[in-house]
Structures are given as C-alpha cells and as structure tokens.
C-alpha cells in the first residue's frame, strides 16, 4: 500500500517538476509513459491508484489552462509586434540595400588576406529574455557556435579574434557554458518594452565603441507565424568599409564636412538600423514561436487529459463492479 502511494505520488511530482521547468511540450509526451507502469502495478490497490490518477488529471488540467493562456498572450503580442515590424522593415531594408553594393563574397576573403594584422570580429547575438518559445534561441546559439573556433584560444583558424555581445538572457545562458571567455557585453531586458530606435542606439554605441573589423548579427528572421529562420548578417567594419569605399563612387556625398566623415556617420547609421531591424525581427519571431509552442503544449495536455479521464472512469467502474460482485456473492452465500 505504502509503496503504491509512493509510486503514484512520484508520478505526480515528476509532472509538477516538468511544469516548473516549463517544458510544456515535453510534459505531454513523456508523462503518460511514466504513468502506465505505475498504474498497472497498482491494479490491486484501487483507492490509492484512483487518487493518484485524479491528482494527475487535476495538475494536467491546470497546466493546460496555463499554456492556453500563454498562447493567447503570445498571439496578442504577436499581432502588435508584427504590425510594428511591418512598418519598420522598409527602413532597415533600404539602408541594407545601399550597403548591399559592397561585394559580399569578398568580405571574408578580405578578412583572411589581412589576417596577419590581427583582426577583430564581433558577434552580436540577439536572443529573447524569456524561454518557452520553442527553438528560436537554441537555433541562434547553434549558429554562433559554428562560427566560433573550437580550440581554446580566442582566435579562429584564419587568425581572427572573436568577441561575443549577447542581447537577451537566454542566449547568455546558452553560450555561457561553452564560450564565456569570448563575452564582452551582455544586455538584458531589451525586449521588456517594445523595441525602439533610441534603445537600439544605446546598444549600437556599445558595438561601435569596440571598433571591430567585422560585425555579424545573429537573429531569427520572421518568415511567417510558423516559420522563423535563424540568420547571420555580416556588416563590414569601418576600416574595411573605408578601404572598399570605391564601390560608392557612383554616388556623390553631400556634406559640409569631408566625405570620409559622411562615411563614418553613414556607417554608424547602418549599424544602428541593421541592429534595429534584427531586434524587431527577433522579437516577432519569439512571439510567433511561443505561440506555436504553447499551442502544441495545450493540445498535448488536452489529449493526455482525455486519456487519463478514460482510464480513471474505467478504473472507477471496475471498483464498483468488484464491490457489487462481492456484495452479491456474500448475499448468495448467506442464503444457502
């Protein structure tokens, strides 16, 4: 008896701990597996088993409610961020288009050819502050790990020194374990309020202060509500931009200062706008991913609750039948 209750309580506790870590999807997949054997073992001990199932049903029901509410919240937020992103996409796109004239395939070659001069590469990793949003953060950190050198030193095989700037708690947690030595700055609570340009400028200034030779921004590009694409966007550092300035010869630079100063300002503007675009894309992706993750979790919880209810009712019916049989058998024994 004690053993049986223990097993039931254990199952409940496991479920509870899953809900604590918040892996809604996994809860629904794993839990029934752990339940089945414990219940079968409980076959003879009816009441304890029924109680265990009832407890599980209750907790699964409330998890389902929570995930459903989270889905609703994410859907509402997604609508807001998507509308905002829709309004600001062209802004970043038009600046990106201008810098698209730079021969992109030459960039890495350029970096390699001057590798002896000790180049610095800054990886700007945009992730969310909060979890429960599917695999968006994992995908980005995986992409970052591919770029980072596997050896112990900070320089990769082509002689480029790497540094990481992380925006968002989740990316920091994910990368800290393997790549903490590359960290320069981390930002948190960036997505607490809607992404704004002044806020982005603060981060961009931090990037510019490090004066890297190449900047790579990692983020999730929002393709649709069910598809987000982990993306890396390389930007040329100021020095390399100056060396490649001839591609802009078609354009006149209008300024009261010399045109190199315009290029410096333009570079700073580019970093800020591209970062702004990346932040917006990522916050939209985050909400979309959270919405679908939470929807899956709610579906699974509902399915599981249905299975458990069936099991519970069967078992209850069995208890009643057994008791009836016992009474009838007892009565008929007395009659004889």
């Amino acid at each position: 008896m004690r053993c049986a209750v223990g097993a039931g309580a254990n199952a409940v506790r496991r479920l509870g701990s899953f809900s604590g870590t918040g892996l809604g999807v996994e809860v629904a997949h794993r839990a029934p597996v752990s339940l089945e054997p414990s219940c079968r073992a409980l076959g003879g001990v009816r009441f304890a088993s029924l109680k265990a199932v009832r407890n599980r049903m209750r907790s699964i029901g409330s998890i389902g409610k929570i995930t459903k509410a989270m889905k609703m919240v994410a859907a509402a937020k997604l609508r807001g961020t998507q509308a905002r992103q829709d309004m600001s996409r062209p802004f970043a796109a038009s600046v990106r288009q201008f810098f698209g004239m730079l021969p992109a395939e030459n960039l890495s070659a350029d970096l390699k050819s001057v590798a002896s001069e000790h180049k610095r590469r800054l990886l700007v990793v945009v992730t969310s502050d909060r979890g429960l949003c599917g695999s968006v953060n994992t995908n980005v950190s995986r992409l970052v790990r591919h770029v980072l050198p596997t050896s112990g030193t900070g320089t990769s095989a082509d002689g480029i020194e790497n540094a990481i700037m992380v925006i968002g708690d989740k990316g920091r947690d994910a990368l800290q374990r393997t790549s903490a030595k590359f960290f320069t700055t981390t930002f948190r609570d960036v997505f607490k309020t809607p992404v704004s340009f002044p806020q982005t400028v603060v981060i961009a200034e931090e990037i510019l202060a490090q004066n890297p030779d190449q900047i790579i921004i990692f983020y999730n590009r929002f393709k649709s509500a069910i598809s987000q694409l982990p993306t890396q966007q390389p930007l040329l550092g100021l020095q390399l931009l100056m060396e490649n300035a001839s591609v802009f010869d078609r354009y006149e630079f209008d300024s009261d200062m010399d045109s190199s100063q315009v290029l410096v300002d333009l570079f700073e503007f580019e970093v800020a706008t591209q970062l702004y675009g990346a932040l917006l894309e990522n916050s939209t992706s985050e909400q979309a991913a959270r919405m679908s993750a939470m929807d899956n979790a709610s579906t699974n919880a509902a399915e599981m609750l249905g299975k458990l209810t069936l099991q519970y009712n069967r078992e209850r019916q069995a208890v009643i039948t057994t008791e009836l049989v016992e009474i009838v058998a007892g009565a008929s024994a007395l009659e004889k």
């Binding site: 802004f91 209008d254 009261d256 702004y276």
Partner: peptide, 25 residues
C-alpha cells in the same frame, strides 16, 4: 519617393514631382 522612419512608413514608391531635403550643406 520612399520616406521611412524607424517606426513608420510615410511614403512607399510614391510618384511625386519633387522633394526638398535639409542636407547638411
């Protein structure tokens, strides 16, 4: 003309006869 700022689109692919912008010079 395309006229963008970070939080909104004022004009996109609009045909106008001319524009005057406050350049720094």
């Amino acid at each position: 003309l395309n006229f963008f700022c970070p939080h909104m689109v004022i004009a996109r692919n609009r045909s106008v006869s001319s524009v005057i912008v406050p350049a720094s010079s």
